[in-house]
Write a protein that binds this DNA or RNA. Sequence first.
DNA 1: AACAACCGCAACCGCCATGTG
DNA 2: GCACATGGCGGTTGCGGTTGT
Length: 309
Amino acid sequence: MGRSPCCSKEGLNRGAWTALEDKILTSYIKAHGEGKWRNLPKRAGTQFPFIFFPCFPLFPLFLEHTPSGLKRCGKSCRLRWLNYLRPDIKRGNISHDEEELIIRLHNLLGNRWSLIAGRLPGRTDNEIKNYWNTNLGKKARAQTQTQSSSPDNSGLKKISSEPQTTEPSNSQPTLETKAIRTKATRCTKLLYPLLQRSEEVEPNHTLTPQDQPELQDEWNQNEVLDVISRQKADFLTFGSNDHVQTSITGEEQYCLQPFEIEEMFVDWTKNPCPEEDNNATLGLDSLEFFLNDEDWPSQEIPCFTGNEN
DNA sequence: AACAACCGCAACCGCCATGTG
DNA sequence: GCACATGGCGGTTGCGGTTGT
């Protein structure tokens, strides 16, 4: 038995929204708040005349689009509100800084547009997705092509699961380059966020949630990813519970930020090998593409699996 | 001027995760 | 534990505007 559709499509308007529909939806949400999208169209339409025409509530009946209920699917209403009508939305004119941040976050997160949008106030996931598809995606592809044709190609996109057959061309350490894979869980859950000011805590002191329970919710996943994407963190530390801690020193704050990770690459030419107990401290320069599925080799490779159950 | 090709973006669709009874 | 409702997300579509021929 299949799922029932989100709503019946019969008799509903489709395509571009009219100004009147926008008004109905906006005024309803301003009066009643967001949510309950499924029932919103019916309720919004029936209240419309009293909102806009308190002295002559039957006037809208003479309009071309008689609002006997907002004739839109609830999902469509939600999308229209979130992507277009919300008052705090910025539209167009994506700045150079925003563009750079999008590129960095996309390297880090892949096509997780809502996560990326969460780091750009006033921008919607749809706008960023469109912007990427029409502008940045082309740039990124062109850049990748020029990089792949360049002999000086450093970075994890080069990491190969094939055995290395050539000798290192210089006197760099000859640790074998390999990728590691943590136990794969989606990177959507924060284990126990902690935040400390530098004057309040010794650097490298490992905090526990019990140390400062009132600060547990101060940071969220997006902020952690932002810190990493801007390379503000000094290093990451593998813990023994399938999470990574970022430590940020310098500037005015120091924090430990454990969070779950999905999977990552590590270039071991730039890092010490993990201890047997699966603890390792990693330089950020080796983690540029972690969480990016596209860079994950298709072939089976030696994996570091974090904490096995 | 007319048409085709291209482009940007709003909107739609289907799937998945989560909440609820 | 199950079924269903709902919200959220990312991929895709198609319309309307712009540019090229």
